[in-house]
Every structure is written in structure tokens, then in C-alpha cells.
């Protein structure tokens, strides 16, 4: 592959690129290609941006170190690079790191987590109070993973859509197309679980959004627990996203009572102020995943597939987009040659 395939602009005849799916994978890929001079049209089957995308329900944590506790360490480098990628393109990327805490009786969970991840500094009660004053006196032990960041996924998706348009790209909502049949020199298939790849499975996730003015957090907080580890991500206007369950299931229905109770209990355990919070939203989504829980970017003729971003959509979409762009250019050069 020539070096221009990974970094360069497209020259000569700019290819017409069709992206199917306007979740985070589709939009990040569309923007990446548009920035490099591609003429990009995105088709989204939902009637609103993110209407059916797993990424609409995401936490928006850019937390490669914490995620690598269970994920393949291969996600760390692209995950760290993603922080800058998002910072350069969307507003509100906050680089306060991640705070990891556990209740006193779960001290072992903190030790285990600390052993297994890089980039974490232990913090005591005063350290926690300094980072998150509202959690002072609630937790005495924790970890601060300073190099991590977070964003608001919905704001980020809107900003990407805006950026795509500014580069001359088009987004067609309520447009269901078959990647094999659609127009375009290159087709990027970013349909997530709608793809019928037999290796792909769904991992159901349930989340809620709460609103309270009684609590202020400035960074994502992970509450370790032997049974129900959760995270709480602060958003604008007193909103907090609480997530997320992981269930091996492709059932598309609503949130189960058990999951709702688990998430709510854990939020309450993080801070009792959540008891008075308003429940703004409670939803379930399906994350597309391959058996190793890592994304795949592949090309078959003029169709490039980006899928399996699992619980790492915002973390790994920039890297997947760059890989998809390289394959796109590779195809373009093959045709030209």
C-alpha cells in the first residue's frame, strides 16, 4: 500500500463514496473520506440522526486504559489517538480523565483493577475530594486515569454530521439501501447489527439518563462492584448517563426491570443525590460484536465493511475510519491502474 493510502488526499477523479449507516462508524468514516476529498453520501434507515444507532446510547467515554481491563490491549493506542481526533472535530471533548472508585468493602476490586490497567494513579479520600468535590467523604480509595477523556455522543454525532455537510457531503435519512446494490464507486457498509455477517452477534446494553442539580461531576466515574460494575458520565445541564449492562442477547425490546434496578441502585450507591434525580430516558440497544470483541475493517471488491465496534464505538471509530479510508483509496487506485 502506498503511503498516500493511509494519509494522503485523493487525487485525480474523486470517487463517489456511499456510506450505509449513520452511527458513529458511518459518520466518522464519512467525515474522514470527505476531509480527504471524497464525494460522500450517507444513507441512514432511521428518520433521525442516531435514531437506531447503538452509538446514540453510548456513554461517550474515551477510556482506552480502563476498557483494556477486559479488552485486548490493541485498543489502547488507537483509543488514545481518538481523543485528539475527536478534540479536533467536535465541541465538548473533556480531558479530565476517569475516576475509578469502589465502596469500602470492595477494596479488593480497586486493587485488582489497578493491577490490570496502565495509566492509573491511586487516589485517597483527599485526592478524590480534589477531583470530584461532591464525592468527598463518600469514597476513600480510587484510581485516577488522567489520560482519558469523554464527550457527549449525541452532540458529537450532530457535530460530525455538520462537518460532513461542510465538506460537501450529504446525509439521507429514512433511506434503507442494500450495500451490494447501491450506487457509488465505493460503498462503506457501517450498518452495525443490521449486517447479516454470520460472525457478528449482538451484545445488549441498557442505560439510563438522569437529571439532577444536586450533584456535580466533571469526569466519568466508574464504580467497581463484584456483581454490577457501572459508570456515570456527566453531561450538560445536570444530565448523567448511567450505563451499562452487557447481556449476550439480540432481543431488541426495552429495558428489563432487573437491569433498571441494578443501574439505579448502583447510581444511588455512587451518590444518594441520585435518589431525587429525574429519570429522563431509559433505553436498551444492541452492540455489534465479533467473537474477539474487536472491530473489523475489510474490503470485498468495492464494498468496505466497518463493523463490530462493540462497546468501543467512539473509542475506535476514528481508527476504523482511517483503515476504511485506506481500503477505499486502495480500491480507487486499483480501478485507476
Amino acid at each position: 500500500m502506498s503511503s498516500s493510502a493511509t494519509t494522503g488526499k485523493m487525487s485525480g477523479n474523486t470517487p463517489r463514496i456511499t456510506v450505509v449507516g449513520a452511527g458513529v462508524a458511518g459518520l466518522a468514516t464519512a467525515v474522514t473520506l470527505a476531509e480527504r476529498g471524497g464525494r460522500v453520501t450517507v444513507h441512514e434507515r432511521a428518520d433521525s440522526l442516531g435514531g437506531e444507532a447503538a452509538s446514540w446510547l453510548a456513554g461517550g467515554m474515551l477510556a482506552p486504559f480502563c476498557e483494556a481491563e477486559t479488552a485486548d490491549p490493541a485498543i489502547i493506542a488507537p483509543g488514545l489517538a481518538a481523543i485528539d481526533w475527536w478534540g479536533d472535530r467536535v465541541p465538548g471533548v473533556s480531558r479530565g480523565g476517569t475516576l475509578v472508585v469502589a465502596a469500602g468493602r470492595d477494596a479488593g476490586e480497586i486493587r485488582r483493577f489497578a493491577r490490570r490497567i496502565d495509566g492509573a494513579e491511586p487516589v485517597d479520600a483527599s485526592g478524590i475530594a480534589r477531583l470530584e468535590p461532591d464525592l468527598a467523604e463518600r469514597f476513600r480509595q480510587g484510581l485516577h486515569v488522567a489520560a482519558e477523556a469523554h464527550l457527549d455522543p449525541r452532540e458529537a454525532l450532530r457535530a460530525l454530521a455538520e462537518r460532513l455537510r461542510s465538506f460537501g457531503g450529504t446525509i439521507r435519512l429514512s433511506s434503507t439501501v442494500d450495500p451490494a446494490a447501491v450506487d457509488g464507486d465505493v460503498v462503506i457498509d457501517c450498518r452495525g447489527i443490521a449486517d447479516d455477517d454470520p460472525a457478528l452477534r449482538s451484545v445488549r446494553g441498557e442505560m439510563l439518563i438522569l437529571r439532577t442539580d444536586e450533584l456535580l461531576l466533571s469526569r466519568p466515574v466508574r464504580l467497581l462492584h463484584p456483581r454490577i460494575p457501572i459508570y456515570v458520565v456527566p453531561r450538560a445541564d445536570g444530565h448523567f448517563m448511567v450505563g451499562a449492562t452487557m447481556v449476550e442477547s439480540d432481543a431488541p425490546g426495552g429495558v428489563t426491570l432487573r437491569s433498571a434496578v441494578d443501574l439505579m441502585n448502583a447510581a444511588y450507591a455512587l451518590h444518594p443525590a441520585f435518589a431525587e434525580a429525574e429519570i429522563i430516558e431509559i433505553k436498551a440497544g444492541l452492540r455489534p460484536a465479533f467473537p474477539d470483541n474487536l472491530p473489523r475493517v475489510t474490503r470485498n471488491g468495492r464494498i468496505v465493511s466497518v463493523n463490530g465496534l462493540y462497546r468501543h464505538g467512539f473509542l475506535l471509530a476514528p481508527d476504523c475510519a482511517a483503515r476504511a479510508a485506506a481500503l477505499t483509496l486502495e480500491h480507487h487506485e486499483e480501478i485507476a491502474a
Binding site: L200, E248, D250, G253, T256
Partner: peptide, 10 residues
Amino acid sequence: EAAGERAGQK
């Protein structure tokens, strides 16, 4: 793991 019958088939 199922949340519904056979939903965990994969």
C-alpha cells in the same frame, strides 16, 4: 443471557 427465548442463540 437470553432476555427472551433464543435471543442468545449466536
